[in-house]
Structure formats: structure tokens, C-alpha cells
Design a protein around this nucleic acid. Sequence first.
DNA 1: GACCTAGATGAGAACGATTCTTAAATAAGA
DNA 2: TCTTATTTAAGAATCGTTCTCATCTAGGTC
Lengths: 142, 142
Amino acid sequence: MQAQKDAVQLLKHAGLRVTPQREAILQFLLDYDGHATVDDIYTSLQDRFPSMSVSTVYNTVKQLSQVGLVKEIGVGDGASRFDINVEPHHHLVCTRCGALFDFYLEEPIHLSVPPEAEGFEIEDYHVEVRGVCPRCKKQQVS
Amino acid sequence: MQAQKDAVQLLKHAGLRVTPQREAILQFLLDYDGHATVDDIYTSLQDRFPSMSVSTVYNTVKQLSQVGLVKEIGVGDGASRFDINVEPHHHLVCTRCGALFDFYLEEPIHLSVPPEAEGFEIEDYHVEVRGVCPRCKKQQVS
DNA sequence: GACCTAGATGAGAACGATTCTTAAATAAGA
DNA sequence: TCTTATTTAAGAATCGTTCTCATCTAGGTC
Ligand SMILES: [Mn+2]
Ligand SMILES: [Mn+2]
Ligand SMILES: [Zn+2]
Ligand SMILES: [Zn+2]
């Protein structure tokens, strides 16, 4: 009767087969405080799963995305990041080091679809705020 | 005394050397109605510059970005796109076909920087609205 | 518990976008 | 015209991701 989420239960409820690799990947994301890349996941699980293929990590995060257990975040260059926080939220991105911070909009954005896109069906939106994180500001050459 | 912008003048004012390739690339972006990829530029200029290298296109758009003549837009997967519209604006992205539409926010977003990111220096932000464009909606299997 | 099979895994090849390297060419100032 | 710092072209290299396919296994059935 544990309070925290259990990777196995989440997988079962999502209708995904429970494999040791999937359980470990999902558990890693549940425990990880941040926005992990495929490589973060892969290298972190090397000890426990020395033979796990990077393909398996890709396959798994794709499936987890499809069933809504994680959300993929692509911030321009570099690797995709995977967010266990699936509530609608947005990100501050450091243009120096790539660090990502969550933030929530105080009120939803108000936009009007332009005439050329009349009839565009909005699914969701993501605000990417770029700037310099506190850490990088300190290390500035000034 | 032409009213439209002249690629050569823009390059000079930006302090960039004027080469035929740069002029052609910038002019292409000025004329192009949309958000071109490196490949769009490259293939469109093949006739006039059969020997131009794709590296030259990459080099050029990078420099144009650095001096603020174009803006790079990365929408997750696939190739970066280059926008001659450098006014602050945002995009609707079709999740089916990748089409991009400009839009402008009626009022700037209101956000509060979370405590973990205290001191984050905001440079700019970009809203990416995902959904289905009118064209793709019509072609839907329903 | 043994059996079956759709689905998952692992290894590496393949791919597409981008960056890097280097020799040759050239823009632009003197 | 001369000079030199920049730019270009070509291809190799890199990086993230997808694909292929032989092998393995989770989980349902008897
Ligand atoms: Mn997040
Ligand atoms: Mn635009
Ligand atoms: Zn930073
Ligand atoms: Zn579309």
C-alpha cells in the first residue's frame, strides 16, 4: 500500500507488457529529478542491464510517450528530453548550458489563429523561454 | 531607391563580406514565403550555383542568424527552419505535415520564474502551438 | 506447469541533419 | 595590383535516431 507510484502498476494500467527493462526505465524517470535524455537513461542503467540496447531505450520512451506516461521535449539542438511531469507546463531553457526548468503559466495564452491557418485545430502548446540560468550567470566573464 | 530590401546592403550593414552565395541565400530567404530549411535553400539554388556546397548554406544561415537577419526555428524533429521574419512572433505547427504558420500573441505572456530558477535572465520566448492544419484536417480518414 | 505466439529485445547497420577539416579561391582594404 | 584574412567546396566525421532481423520472453491458454 505504498503511496508513491509503482512502475509496474503504471505499465499494466497503460496496457504495456511489463519487462525488466521497461520497469527500470520508467522507474528511473520517476526517480530522476529533471528531464533525462535517452543517453542519461541508457548510461544510468548500464550497471544493472549491461546488455540493454540503446534501441530498447528509444522504443520504451516512445511507448511511454504514446500512452501518456512521459512527455517528449525537443529543445532545438541536441537530444530529446523526457519529462515524467505530464501536466501541462512550460520550460525555461539556458542557452549556455542547456539546463531546463519547469514553469507554469499564470493564465493560459490568448491567441487568434491567422487567416492563412483558418480552421487549424489546436491540440496543445508549449512555451520555451530562453535565457541564462543563475549558475551560468555567476560564471560569466564580465 | 527601391523600396524593397536589398540583400547586398543588408549584408554590408551587418558587417558581412558580400559573396555571390551569401547574396543569393539571403535573397532567397527574402523572397521565400515561409520557413525554409537548409535543403530548401540548397536545392533551390542548385541551378544558379551548381557547385555550391551544403556547408556554405549552413555557414551562411548561421552567420545570418548571428547578425540577426534571420531567426532559426527548431521544431523538434527534422531540419531547422530559417525565418526572415525576425519580429517577435510565434508558430502553429501541424503535427501531421509539419506546416508552419506565424501568429502573434495579443498580449505578452505572464510568467513567474520558479524558485529553483531564481535569477534566470530571460532573453526571449517562443510559443509553439501544435495541432492539425486545415489541409490535413480535410484529408482525414474519418 | 508446459506450451504458444504476439510482442519485445539486442546488435549493428542505416539514415538524416549538422559540423568539421583542409586546400584552394576570393573579397576588400592598402 | 598586392596582400591577407575570410570564405568556399568537397567530403569525412559526428550525433541522435530509426530500422532490420534473428533471438528471446511475457503472459495468456490448456
Ligand atoms: Mn518539465
Ligand atoms: Mn515565422
Ligand atoms: Zn546555464
Ligand atoms: Zn498539416
